[in-house]
Each structure stands twice: as C-alpha cells, then as structure tokens.
Amino acid sequence: MAIKYSELVIEHFKNPHNVGTIDNPDAEATEGSPACGDQLTVYLKVDPETQKIEDIKFQSYGCASNIATASIITDLALGKSIEEAKKITWKQASEELGGLPPVKMHCSVLAVDALRSAIKDWEKKNLGKQFDESLTKKNVEKALQKVIYGKVGVDIISLKLVKYIGIDDENNVVIELAIGKDDSFLDDVKHEIMERMEKFDNIGSVKIALV
C-alpha cells in the first residue's frame, strides 16, 4: 500500500514556518539524535510577565513529516501561554496536518516531545520547578507512551503491547513486550525503547523480552 502525505504536510515541508534559531533563547531542548535518524531542537522566547511564548524556532534533521510536524507545533505554540502550550498533543499536531501515515506518527511525538522539553527547561530556569525524572515504573511507562508502533501509528502503552515493567534494586529494567519476533517493526520499537530508557540517569541494563 502506498504511503502518502496529506497536502498540508507537503505544504509545511515545502515552506516550513519558524525555522531557525533564537539568539539567547529563554529555553531550548533537543530530542532525538542523528543515530536514531531524526533530531529536533526547539528554541523559546517567553514573556516573563504573561508567560506567553513570544517567539519559537526550530531546527530539524529529519524527513518531510519531521519538518512538517515541527512547523505545525511551533505554529500552535506561538502566542500561547506556557500552560496552554503544554497541552498540545502529538495527536493534535497530526490532526492539524490532516493526518500522518502510521509509520510517520513518531515524528509528531518527537515534535511535541521537543516542545515539552523546551517548556520544562523554561520552567526549571524561570520558575525553579523540579521534575521527578527518577527511574520509577510510572516514569518508565510515561516514557514508553512516546514509543510508537509504526504499523498502526499508536503508542505501545495505549496498544497494551507492554505487558510488564520491572525495575530491580540495581536499576536494571525488564520490559515485556507482546510483539511477534518476526514483526517487521520490532527492531524499530526496540530501538525507540532503548533510546527512551537511556535518558534515565543511573539506569542499569535494559532487557526487552517478547511474550
């Protein structure tokens, strides 16, 4: 079956909005990495009084949908308050673009992730907020909500593909996945899980078992 982009994706890819950097940004965040095939950096300028996003820019290393989703989330966030911008979801970003092919849904997740990380960066710096980013079952589950199963374009938690999350005293993590060993997306899902788990400080080994 042919994978096709919507006209809006094509338009945002051809003429993306808010590309570039901000000198002395109030906050910034990078998600993804060249080794994973896509990377996005978001820069923010926030009015300290109103807490509104005055300016937002992005730089993207990635495919057409990566660029298009970055373009749309920066459009959606511009002019919004920090609290409003936090509520932008990857599903919303995809809908605003007239939908994304399932295999490309992870681009929308990356875009929203980069936006939320930039907002967190701002909250840490300006509001002194602390975030619980420790290695807990709850946080692992939260991280796995960002792993998309490319065949259907939905995250592995919503799809109930994660059957068990275990963390032992030495911070070794076991994740049981209900995905067939011959599934063509298995490697991608594993890769994404590892990428998400690497972000936890002091994490031990990560074992992904198929059940």
Partner: peptide
C-alpha cells in the same frame, strides 16, 4: 537509503 523512506523505519 534513508530509514524514513523504508516501510519499517530500518536504515
């Protein structure tokens, strides 16, 4: 040879 253009996101 981009993974993004493959059906299962593999390089």
């Amino acid at each position: 040879g981009s993974a993004c253009s493959s059906e299962n996101l593999k390089p």
